[in-house]
């Protein structure tokens, strides 16, 4: 743990040591997150992410992110909300994008390596935003999708601020415990926004994990996601249905409540209920999980997370209650 924290500190200092560009003309930003956490599942975790992003030539925007993180203790999905904790310093998203916005339309493209645009998929939707674990349907070990799915290819988004369609074509290049086999990925997403309600539908056709040699056929999922937010209260969720390989079916989803009302000051309260049904004969599995917690802005650059997790009995294990805590330091130049 000490070595990890030292590494994170060194990275942070290196980033902070980069002289900033002239503030008025600054077009490139550097950002670093350093996180340390502990779970009562006897898991310790630490990680750091470094991002460089900003304006490139001809109105292209550039984004590059690298991540290192590791956990110590028994196998657990604790702290895997949006980054792989596998003791590897690896690039994550590295892309160039350009978006043209008119009075009534927008069109944009993204080239490079980016998170699979299925459902609620952005880093900022899952990483250190209140939940310390990925939803069951978004953790690579649960026969569904993963927040660490990455595509190398091109995506195009077109539409208006109220109705947008996004299509991505590429090859899988995951940074996950389970990595998908090479193949041709197709992802499509349609999103509409009406007042405080945002609803999306997604489709993905990809490959199963290469670490499952007995898994035949393709991976295919449909998803529905929604977010509603008003007055500091956000309700969001996703539901997916499909198969991770031939002969199986996986369906499930999660619903999040995220509350940040004025009287709560620096505290954001979060709660999640989720389920996942994996139908595969004798290997079937039906995990359920309930999470309650908070994100507390301790200082301008320091955020604390606390999650209490209750998992009913499944797969022969008894019910389990866990407490995850983490501190995340974020700096930007």
């Amino acid at each position: 743990m000490k070595r990890v924290l030292e590494t994170g500190t060194v990275v942070a200092l290196l980033v902070l040591g980069v002289p900033p560009a002239d503030a008025a003309a600054q077009s490139v930003f550097t950002e670093v997150d350093v996180t340390a956490g502990h779970s009562t599942e006897d898991v310790q975790a630490a990680g750091t992410q470094v991002r460089v992003f900003g304006e490139g030539p001809k109105q292209w925007r550039l984004f590059a992110e690298a991540s290192w993180a590791d956990v110590w203790g028994p196998t657990s999905d604790a702290f895997g909300a949006a980054y792989p904790y596998n003791n590897r310093f690896r690039p994550m998203e590295v892309f160039a994008e350009r978006t043209i916005t008119g009075q009534r339309f927008l069109v944009g493209t993204r080239l490079g390596r980016y998170r699979t645009p299925f459902g609620i998929y952005n880093r900022s939707d899952h990483g250190y935003t209140g939940f310390l674990r990925a939803p069951l349907i978004r953790y690579g070990g649960y026969w569904a999708l993963s927040n660490n799915f990455l595509e190398t290819g091109a995506s195009v988004v077109a539409g208006t601020s109220r109705l947008q369609a996004e299509v991505s074509l590429g090859i899988p290049q995951d940074e996950d415990v389970q990595r998908r086999r090479r193949g041709f990925d197709r992802v499509a997403r349609l999103q509409t926004a009406a007042g405080p309600l945002i609803v999306g539908g997604s489709y993905i056709h990809t490959q199963p994990s290469e670490e499952r040699p007995w898994a035949e056929g393709d991976t295919e999922f449909l998803g529905l996601d929604a977010r509603w937010m008003i007055g500091g209260v956000q309700v969001r969720g996703e539901w997916i249905d499909g198969r991770s390989f031939a002969g199986t079916r996986t369906y499930g989803g999660y619903a999040d409540l995220i509350v940040h009302r004025p009287f709560m000051g620096p505290v954001t309260a979060v709660a999640r209920a989720e389920k996942l049904d994996y139908l595969a004969g004798q290997r079937s599995s039906f995990p359920r999980r309930y999470t309650a917690g908070a994100r507390v802005r301790v200082a301008s650059m320091l955020v604390a997370h606390v999650n209490a997790i209750r998992e009913p009995a499944f797969d022969g294990d008894g019910p389990r209650t866990s407490l995850d805590v983490a501190l995340t330091f974020t700096a930007r130049r």
Partner: peptide, 16 residues
């Protein structure tokens, strides 16, 4: 939520 006008504009997507 601090001083001044208190408001929360909710989530909104690119282009909005």
């Amino acid at each position: 939520f601090n001083h001044g006008k208190r408001f929360d504009l909710g989530l909104y997507p690119t282009g909005a």
